[in-house]
Each structure stands twice: as C-alpha cells, then as structure tokens.
C-alpha cells in the first residue's frame, strides 16, 4: 500500500505537533515534523510529501497578531513552493494557529489569489478561552461541499477550542456570499440542537459563526477547533465517541489519508 507522507511544519512556538503527528499516524500516515529553517534550506523538500499540516500553537509568540509573523515568513521565503503545493490539490490543513497562518498568508480562502482577503481577529470577549464547542458540519454528500477533510462526519460534532483570536471576518459581503454559495463554510459554531448559539457556545463572535473553511477545490482546510485533541473517545469530557474507542476528530485526519491513498 502507498505510504502517505505528511509534513507538519514547525517553528518557534509550535505546540500541537506531537498530538497532530499522533493523529495522522493513528490513521496510517507517515509523519515528519520539519522546522521551517529546513524547508528554507531545501526549498523543494515540501514536494516529497502528500499532506501538509500547519499545527496549532503560538508561532513566534503570536506577537503582533496570531500567525502573522509565520505567515509573512512562509510567504516571503517559500511562497511559490507552497502555492504550487496547494494548487496541486494535495491536502493541506491548518489548525488554530495554522488556520490563522493560512488565512493571513492567503492560501485560504483561495490559493489561486494567494492574498489575504479575510482575517481571524480578537475574540469578542477579548479573552483567550479553552472550552469544548458544538460544530455544525457541511458535508460533501449533503451540501456538495468539496471539502475532502470533513466527509463522513455527523451533522453536529463537538471539538475543543483554545484561542484568543478566532473571530473570522471576510473582507466584504461578496466574499461571504461566495463562501456560502460554494459551501466552503464547513464548520460553524452551533448549539447542541443545531440552532444558532450564543456566547460561550459561540466563543468568539465570528461572522456567521464560521469556525472552519475550505478552498473551492476542497483540499485546503482551516479551522479554529482542534480535531487532533479528539481522536480517542477518552479525550471527550464525557468520554463519548464512535466504535467505543475513537473520537470524531480522527475522521478528519482519516479522510485526508484515505484521499491520498
């Protein structure tokens, strides 16, 4: 069987690399955590991999703004390589800080454009908060979202969030409409019954409760919640999951690995 090689990009302040690696490996991928300096040194190294992951954390301390310094660094030093990778339809995921990086460098919502046209800003509460939330999913089957990462998920799942800057804001109404039209808004914060949530279930005041988006092709996925923290049922506050053992976050990683296979 084909080995699915995953690259997890590391730099100063990357935190969630261990658990993201564990999640991909649980789904059968071969994972390497690679420091950005190594990629800058060997610019084509990235093409040895099938999946690219930007993990959570506080890259460069989130100084100035979350993900800002890393997104600039990647764009300025490796921009063309990452764009090429993104346009080759290989799966890319950005989780939390990784999502902030993808958005600020412009690989989301549209890698062809490769420009920042949306942002993740300070939570309305102006507080860093760690909690579990419900997410309403839009799936390929039902809503014809192209997102390869979110197939086979139930309508509502729960995941943990931990961020201070997760309020998604598109630059204009037109972009919001097209995100909606193309079913790119794959995760929205939700109440347990699927209705519109209030704080704290809407943790940050995102426009239209946006928690995660993908590009039109569906290979690039960015989200504020942490699926890597819910690959086992044990990790759920009430130890809930599927098959008695796994957490719903695992499906997300499995989808990408299966897609490559």
């Amino acid at each position: 069987m084909k080995k699915v090689k995953t690259l997890i990009l590391r730099t100063a302040g990357t935190n969630c690399d261990y658990e993201t690696q564990a999640a991909f490996e649980l789904c059968g991928a071969v994972v390497e955590c690679v420091h950005i300096n190594t990629l800058i040194e060997k610019k084509d190294k990235i093409f040895e991999y099938d999946i690219l992951a930007f993990p959570g954390g506080f890259s460069y301390g989130d100084d100035i703004a979350s993900g800002k310094i890393l997104s600039n660094e990647v764009k300025n030093k490796l921009g063309d390589k990452f764009k090429k990778f993104a346009l080759s339809d290989k799966p890319i995921i950005g989780i939390c800080n990784g999502f902030q990086v993808l958005v600020k460098m412009g690989l989301l919502p549209e890698p062809k454009l490769f420009e920042q046209i949306s942002t993740l800003s300070y939570n309305d509460s102006d507080k860093f908060e760690c909690r579990w939330v419900y997410l309403k999913t839009e799936k390929k089957v039902k809503n014809e979202s192209n997102c390869i990462w979110t197939k086979n998920l139930p309508d509502i799942i729960s995941l943990s969030i931990a961020h201070g800057e997760g309020k998604f804001i598109p630059n204009n109404k037109k972009l919001l409409n097209s995100l909606n039209k193309n079913n790119q808004i794959v995760f929205r914060y939700s109440s347990k019954d699927g209705s519109k949530p209030e704080y704290p279930l809407d943790p940050n005041g995102s426009i239209e409760q946006i928690a995660g988006i993908c590009n039109t092709k569906g290979n690039i996925f960015g989200l504020m919640p942490h699926p890597e923290r819910y690959v086992f049922a044990l990790q759920h506050p009430a130890k809930e999951g599927f098959d008695g053992e796994y957490g719903w976050g695992k499906i997300i990683f499995q989808n990408a690995v299966d897609f490559v296979k």
Binding site: Y60, G61, D63, I64, K68, I69, N72, E73, N76, K77
Partner: peptide
C-alpha cells in the same frame, strides 16, 4: 519580547 519578534519579522520582509 514583542520588539524582538518584530525585528526578526522585519528581516523576513527583506
């Protein structure tokens, strides 16, 4: 600490 990060990031801008 922020100033140190800014100096690094300015270099990244070229």
């Amino acid at each position: 600490t922020v100033s140190e990060s800014v100096m690094k990031a300015v270099k990244d801008l070229g």
